[in-house]
Design a protein around this nucleic acid. Structure first.
Lengths: 343, 343
DNA sequence: TTGAAAGCGCTACCAT
DNA sequence: ATGGTAGCGCTTTCAA
């Protein structure tokens, strides 16, 4: 370990009280004393013991993130990882620690309870909310500050959240494809137990209906967003009697699977079939026309993580009163030839 | 919060001492008393305060992972996320917390120092070791138990690590391609400041040299493992006077870029050009012949995380004395048509 | 088998 | 402006 406050005080021939005050910026300390203390602390490499400080103040200076194991395909999802990275940045900057709790599916609620009851964290971030999600009620009841990345429905009490405007994003993407003349647009959606997937489908359906286009169930598919899912969706849908001319999807992994599936069928992307991805950044492609239409890039997701974490910290430190909410618009990059109609 | 030990003791008309002993499995407690205490604790939802326990015992019951910000392209790397997920599993099971510290590049060493000095963690996991990495010396000096995921060179003191046998893996993959008749094999490697990349190159070079094949610098490229890197490598290499007939690479993202780059050139994967990926699992592809040769799949990386965490816990709890080491062989799936020679 | 009491390192209240 | 002291909630001698 390092040196303790008491030892530091003894070395300076001061009381622990004064040293503590000097280090924590209390005004009643003589400026000369403060300088002396700070210098000595730095020289001795003094760092206050987290646990002792926490015990005395009643705050953990830590924020918890709970990751259920099944969802941990999820952790592999760049969206998820980037969000965590962004949040971690904010915590570090604020002098908070991030506690990640990876637990079995059925132990998720216990994990929240435990983190709170043991006093390990001052606040919690809730990931991947389902359309109906009991965690919001649970955490409200437990009285621990929390922030949801996303939203959930049918919750009576207000709660803090930060979300991408998924409905609007998918609506715009669909409109774009429709303007290009597409009529058979396939939606390769995430699991529709998830709130974000419902919203995306709503956006897609709004745009289709507004354009007077029929909703063909054969063109809508929903599952966990993996590569195999994308691959199979591409293969199976293109083998239908009347295949889609465009695919709209939401995940980098699904998009990879889709593209591979289409290429394996001998189709040329952007000519014979279009793939519009939600979270894919393909701006490195040489042809400007191949820039994707529509992206929630890594940097924007990380930004979301930073922002959500900062909002949570506001609440935790009492600088703001919940609920705090934020609806971010997805970045929209226009000019994609991958949205081009079959010629 | 919850109820405290003292309150629980008062309610049971016992001393805190006895309650503590009963709950922590000390043998000298009357079995009847223990039952009574455990029942009451469960009913009251009692959870010991982490910080108080830590203060009293001197252990944090937490393990730290430090993620430098620049590397946090890295966090997006499925390999990295899966490892964390696996480690998190082990920690949870052992009743340990995982503390993730995301910090600016130049603050990495400080982050380690701080985590240790503040007593926030009992042990540390070191990620993405460079070929020459000062962190091992630092942590050895600080005397904090740690475990490296990977290895580093030129370190005098022994240290604990868990690594994939990268050299052997790439050697075997190269041999496989050579057996298929490939002579111009491109290596699209990770950043060669990283230890794993050096080892992979060594494996590749050994196999090439053993087969009497020349090492063409034009066929070796090294950079951070992103999609754009793969795309550009494919495009540029295939435009050389004598292009490669096969690509050997190490990352899912690079492989995606590579494949897209090749497809954009109008080439057919597995027929005109081969791509062998280290960490890609494409076993979902319908054609058995398209199963990838060579994988460090998500599940195996997660397994590595679990294992590394368990080893670290062994050291932290004093059940084993460092250094603990483990060299895992990469899974090898033979029979890939993506390794097929140009026909 | 149980309990009293002294800390762990820090903060915060009450004095001076 | 500085110091004494009582905890925060738990574990751990030492006694009984």
């Amino acid at each position: 370990m390092g040196i303790t406050l008491k030892e530091l005080a003894a070395a300076l021939d001061l009381s622990p009280t004064t040293v503590s005050r000097a280090l924590n910026g209390y005004p009643e300390v003589n400026e000369a004393t403060r300088q002396r203390v700070q210098l000595a602390a730095r020289k001795a490499g003094y760092q206050p013991n987290t646990r002792a400080k926490g015990l005395a103040t009643g705050r953990a200076h830590a924020i918890g993130h709970v990751i259920p194991l099944s969802t941990s395909h999820e952790i592999v999802n760049p969206i998820f990882a980037d969000f965590i990275a962004g949040a971690g940045e904010s915590y570090s900057r604020a002098g908070y620690d991030m506690v990640l709790s990876v637990v079995a599916d059925d132990a998720e609620e216990d994990a929240y309870r435990s983190l709170i009851a043991r006093g390990t964290v001052d606040g919690l971030m809730v990931h991947a909310p389902r359309h109906h999600d009991s965690r919001v009620a649970l955490l409200s009841e437990l009285g621990c500050p929390f922030m949801v990345h996303g939203r959930t429905s049918e919750v009576t009490s207000p709660y803090s959240w930060l979300d991408i405007n998924n409905k609007r994003a998918f609506q715009r993407a669909t409109e774009f494809l429709i303007e290009l003349g597409h009529k058979r647009i396939a939606l390769i959606n995430g699991l529709e137990t998830m709130d974000f997937a419902i919203r995306r489908r709503n956006g897609y359906e709004s745009a289709m209906q507004a354009a007077g286009l029929a909703l063909d169930p054969a063109l809508i598919r929903s599952a966990e967003m993996t590569e195999p899912f994308g691959y199979r969706a591409a293969q199976e849908m293109m083998r239908q009697p009347v295949p889609p001319t465009a695919f709209l999807t939401s995940s980098m992994l699904v998009a990879y699977g889709l593209r591979r599936g289409l290429v394996d069928l001998g189709l040329t992307l952007g000519r014979e079939v279009s793939v519009i991805t939600h979270d894919d950044d393909l701006s490195y492609l040489p042809n400007g026309g191949d820039v994707p239409l529509f992206t929630a890039t890594r940097s924007s997701v990380r930004e979301a993580g930073r922002k959500a974490a900062n909002m949570l910290l506001e609440v935790v430190t009492g600088r703001a009163a919940p609920p705090l909410t934020c609806l971010m618009e997805a970045a929209l990059v226009v000019g994609s030839s991958t949205g081009r109609l079959r010629q």
